[in-house]
Amino acid sequence: MAGPILRLSGLGKSFDGNTVFSGVDLDVYPGDRISILGASGSGKSTLLRCINLLEIPDAGQMEIQGATVGEPSRSGRARYPERQLRDLRQRVGMVFQHFNLFPHMTTAGNVAEGLTTVRGMPAGEARQRALTELRRVGLEDKADTYPSRLSGGQKQRVAIARALAMDPDILLFDEPTSALDPALVGEVLGVIEQLANEGRTMLLVTHEIGFAYHVSTRVVFLGENGIYETGTAEEVLKHPKRPLTQQFLAEHKRFQF
């Protein structure tokens, strides 16, 4: 079996002395779909943001495709030169809770932006690629629409297309449906499921336990200080072994019928 695409060893982050998480070890293999669950404040989003270095981790190490990211420094904390940040972020696509589309660009412009500005692709070619990605998320007919005219679900699908356009090795979803009207959650989950069926590697922070069960190859439950429990969806979500996971799932299942 090939090595992991992404390996986190002892990754940690704290803000002003408050530990958000620490000692996170995680190997992500091609085709893995890992859901990250945890109580609010357990650092799920921060972990994702550390993986594409929107937050700089202050302990541990990250390897992508076998190459260490960052450079060791005297303080013992890795340093991340600007060029490495940009390289890594192109290989790790991010989908945000609040979409963060560029409001002054059309949807095709949003999707093509990384290709033209970052990769230097000619505008015509980038637009074709953008249309391909928009077709994938079912929004080709909205190519020349500005984000302000889209529903939340459509916005999130454009954001997914924007991430896909960069051909990332891994996709990170940071609570992609939490900001959506309940009626619009389905269409976004549908797109994510379709990407899962294509065999894309992804890390998903979500509160949609049912969806996580359905789509994940692995589930990670984050506790106060790092990974609290991990295993297959069946193991963690159906037969959790540890009390906090059990409690969390009980809370989330309270009104399911």
Binding site: R86, R89, F96, H98, N100, E113
Partner: peptide, 27 residues
């Protein structure tokens, strides 16, 4: 401009200057 705009620009691999020129300043 919302911090999310900087983050989205960086997340697709833009440098700070590219983000400023293409995403932040136009808005």
């Amino acid at each position: 401009i919302e911090p999310g705009q900087w983050e989205a620009a960086k997340a697709i691999g833009m440098s700070g200057l590219q983000a400023l020129r293409r995403i932040i300043l136009p808005q």
